[in-house]
Design a protein around this nucleic acid. Structure first.
Lengths: 250, 250
DNA sequence: TATACGGCATGACGTAACGTCAATGTCAAG
DNA sequence: CTTGACATTGACGTTACGTCATGCCGTATA
């Protein structure tokens, strides 16, 4: 029920010094302090520490964290939902950083050209800052994305949409000897893009992620590979190009 | 061709002070130093700075970075591939953190029980450290995952494997009224797990990612939802449980 | 030509979030 | 009853910069 410093530090994967520091700055006070001066942490402390670690993961300063979790109208569950959203953003940032890596490799191998600006894309996103403001303003946020409900379509519509998807994939296979960046192929990507919107409003990042996924995920890749051995890589290149142009245009 | 401090700092999204600091500690020396004492950075500097930022992103200390990028046998492209791998790990760690968030929410809502240990799962992964050691030992790493080549199967085998996958999905639908954590359902998950191995050796994280993906990605979710409206969520829960047990066992 | 103004330089000190001793008290096990 | 792991409070060290202060450079404008 009550944890000592070492016990909690082992559990949470932080150093004892860190816990003492958090006590010192009033960020995480122990639930009780024994006669001997020992710190004892309770259930609630654990939850609070978890919150602190989540915010730390998102690069908040301890001062900011203290303000946030110390606020009287701090809602743990709402905060958790916000964390989820922020981590998804982090994740997509990582994905875009991976794209930057890919581009750089191609560039260094002389297979592609790259502007100096592109070297440093996606390192520091200001979205993180936006999130910080947002959360300081209001803790209760919905965090539910506007994902169109598939079941809102009639069975006939569903069948039609699926058929369209399949036909798009077949069209890709047909053009597989073309350059993925050619106009013809790019047109098919545009159709694919349109089709996605039956499900949700796809962001550029989201689509890039799909391209990645199509080529990486074995289950998916298997499906495409069964249509054509190199289809996944072809799709990846084509979608990447498409997204690149989108970004340039916007 | 030559960038001044401010120009490079704007380009790369770091402060001028940071650049001066990197010069001071010998991490990033300017290509040339003008009569007036001005720092001028070249093309190569840009690439080096990019490398530095990548390592910084992975929480290396500047001292470590200096050692690594300063090493005579430092191979940029190999390093980039290693970055890619490390960032994928980061990404999957984030995904698991999101799972931890979900669990905590369910726990707080009283819909699920959670051990104190679970509170802090996936915050600090020691894999990061493993990567650090690995990269310090040897820069030239292959970074190509052992992904079984789908085309190495005969068409008949491919068909059989796909058929097996489909049958597994159908079995899930059949048991959809059961508890996802029941033994019967877990057995099907085990079959699914086995089947994955035709494609690659799935890690626990990888599988958890799949569960997430099945329920999140619209294209995939659509496929499953067409089989049963709540199949994606069912799969997510079932796979999550399965992975949880695996981790516990190992 | 003067002057303003942004960018450059070098110190030098500040700071955040701990790490790392040092010196000392506490407690459960053998 | 000692031993060894864990507890305490200082206090200083460290990393990766931020933030002045002070002064020089360079060029666009009055």
């Amino acid at each position: 029920m009550a944890y000592t410093v070492k016990q909690l530090s082992d559990l949470a994967g932080v150093s004892p010094r860190t816990l003492r520091h958090y006590d010192a700055i009033g960020l995480l006070k122990p639930a009780s302090c024994g006669e001997n001066g020992y710190r004892y942490y309770s259930n609630e402390s654990l939850l609070r520490l978890q919150q602190i670690l989540f915010y730390r993961e998102l690069d908040f300063s301890l001062e900011e964290i203290k303000e946030i979790v110390g606020s009287p109208d701090f809602d743990v569950i709402a905060a958790l939902r916000a964390h989820k959203k922020a981590m998804r953003q982090q994740r997509s940032r990582l994905e875009r950083l991976i794209v930057t890596i890919d581009k750089t490799i191609l560039h260094l191998e002389g297979k592609r050209n790259m502007s100096h600006k592109e070297y440093f894309e996606n390192f520091s996103e200001e979205k993180q800052r936006k999130y910080a403001e947002e959360i300081r303003q209001r803790f209760g946020d919905k965090a539910f994305e506007g994902c169109t409900d598939w079941s809102s379509y009639t069975p006939e519509q569903q069948a039609a949409i699926r058929a369209e998807i399949e036909s798009i994939y077949r069209d890709f296979v047909e053009k597989i000897d073309h350059d993925p960046r050619s106009a013809e192929v790019q047109q098919i990507v545009a159709r694919w893009h349109q089709n996605l919107r039956y499900f949700y409003e796809p962001s550029v990042e989201g689509m890039r992620g799909l391209g990645q996924f199509y080529s990486e995920h074995p289950d998916f890749a298997a499906k495409f590979r069964s249509m054509h051995p190199t289809l996944p890589e072809f799709l990846l290149e084509a979608i990447d190009e498409y997204c690149g142009n989108l970004t340039g245009a916007v």
